[in-house]
Amino acid sequence: MMLLEIDNLSLNFRTRSGVVKALEDVSLSVGRGETLGVVGESGSGKSVLSFAVMGISDAAATVSQGAIRFEGLDLLKAGPSDLDELRGAEMAMIFQNPRTALNPIRPVGRQIADVLLRHAGVTRAQAQDKAVEMLARVRIPDPERRAKAYPFEMSGGMCQRVMIALALACSPKLLIADEPTTGLDVTTQAAIMDLVGELARESRMATLLITHDLGLAAERCDRIAVMHAGHVVEVAPTAELFARPRHPYTARLISTTPRPGASLAALEPIPGSLPDLRGELAPCRYSARCHLYQAECDAGPLPRQDDNGRMVACRRPA
């Protein structure tokens, strides 16, 4: 059994201007100690997916089908108190915007201590000490003093590290990291990712690493899932994905990423943009942008081929 299993998950948002089909038939799984990368353009549904796993979707969201299982427990059917026990302790999340993701009027150390107090069965003083220790682990200088600071007194990168300390405080089994290192300098970025990797090895923590940075994904992930407009279009072990992308979108995505040795001319943007997720959508949401598109692509649901841990949702895969 995998640690996290997402089966055929579809999620919609009710909005004034219609129903946004933000996720459709998403299936993914993450094993213990594994790092799964999730890549895709802005708006492809990466954050929506991670919120759904954490059970913190917006009120306007409804899951129309599918299941999310964590250690066999169906999260979509679990009661709120069961979920509260899991959240923060067994599974934790690093949010995309560290500045706004922290409570502006509560000292950052207290915010970490709050989570520890809730889950770790410690006293307030112990929680505070542990919070300082966590701040030190994410390489915040002078953690004692910083624990008493408010988010507005810190730089963006510093808030990012607080966010990471907050997520890792209870040594979760699953870490969802939504762009954990954007806004950090290269050295800190490496140090943070090393820390995450260390925890992953030590305590077999699984990581869902959401990123725009294909380079980072290539370096840190065991497998990578590619998302486009609410679909998972391809999943493959990292090396294979880069060596032989099968979905045309994956291939485009890789060719738009600067690499050493590649000429700048090869860096062409992906044509077109994400489709509007409201209203009718073609079975393949990439078809309007695809250079391989043919009429047969519009015929019914996409076939999904699974072989040797590879999946691609395309009628004309490479």
Partner: peptide
């Protein structure tokens, strides 16, 4: 509706803590 409330919920904090300590104080 703000991000830090989502963070508090993701930390599994109790409903009372989220509502009073995090939301109401702000």
């Amino acid at each position: 509706g703000s991000d830090f409330i989502r963070t508090a919920r993701a930390g599994g904090l109790s409903r009372g803590t989220v509502l009073v300590t995090y939301a109401l104080r702000n």
